[in-house]
Amino acid sequence: MQSIIAVSELSKVYASGFQALKSIDLDIRPGEIFALLGPNGAGKTTLISIICGIVNASTGGVTVAGHDIRRDYRVTRAMIGLVPQELTTDAFESVWNTVSFSRGLFGKPANPRYIEKVLKTLSLWDKKDDRIMTLSGGMKRRVLIAKALSHEPRILFLDEPTAGVDVELRQAMWEVVRSLRDSGVTIILTTHYIEEAEDMADRIGVINNGELILVEDKNELMRKLGRKQLTLQLHDPLDTIPDKLSAYGLELAAGGVELIYTYDTQGEPTGITALLGELQQAGIRFKDLNTTQRSLQEIFVSLVKKPA
């Protein structure tokens, strides 16, 4: 499948000498939701800014639908909508005017019906004549999304779209994102709410210190790195773990009434059957059990904490 965005050996060194990106290679597939995760200062916004034309790359290149972002900037930029991280709006403008302005700026003729549809989708229709300065933070964020969608982009960049947005509005926004994906729009998002990436994304990229340390299908990532834990609720509490069971790396919790076994889902075997057999032989009875999987957040933390 041909990439909709192809980033090749992209590096960025700012005038201060700070290297924000180190030879990034990345392919974004058409129609996917790609979540770019990374701690503050990792290079997420720099990468997005270069693709959108706001920041100049030091070396390397980017193509969008096969077009070079520098040589064919008119074609590539017309395909992209960007929702920036900061709430940067024209405070004195009305919602309708600022969204219509964006459509014109991106080279599209006026289309009041489309603008109306966008505003209604984002629950902004009743605010269309309000000045942006009178809106709440969440509403301003929606205005930025409306501006980014005003020219019917094929690719949408969402840089921390839910920062400072309440839960209800956040869920409504993700509904919009899902429907956009269903309509064929490719979405690249950065977020601090890793559970959102876990919930929304098709693929995950993790960037740290300007290096792309991982790009993986989300389900595959969870399968590979999402170690699971088996928790056994013991009938009688244990003071210590019997020596015979030491090979399993068990932990005691909740005052000795919980026995925790961490296993690798990729492991062959996982060791669960053997453990349960040995517990029975040792006379350790349990009254309940459950399994939990390591969250993406834990995976993310373990990845970015690795020494460079």
């Binding site: 930029r77 920036p84 940067t88 080279g107």
Partner: peptide, 9 residues
């Protein structure tokens, strides 16, 4: 808001 001008075609 200059971001929009710089990212526009």
């Amino acid at each position: 808001t200059i971001y929009e001008l710089l990212s526009a075609p």
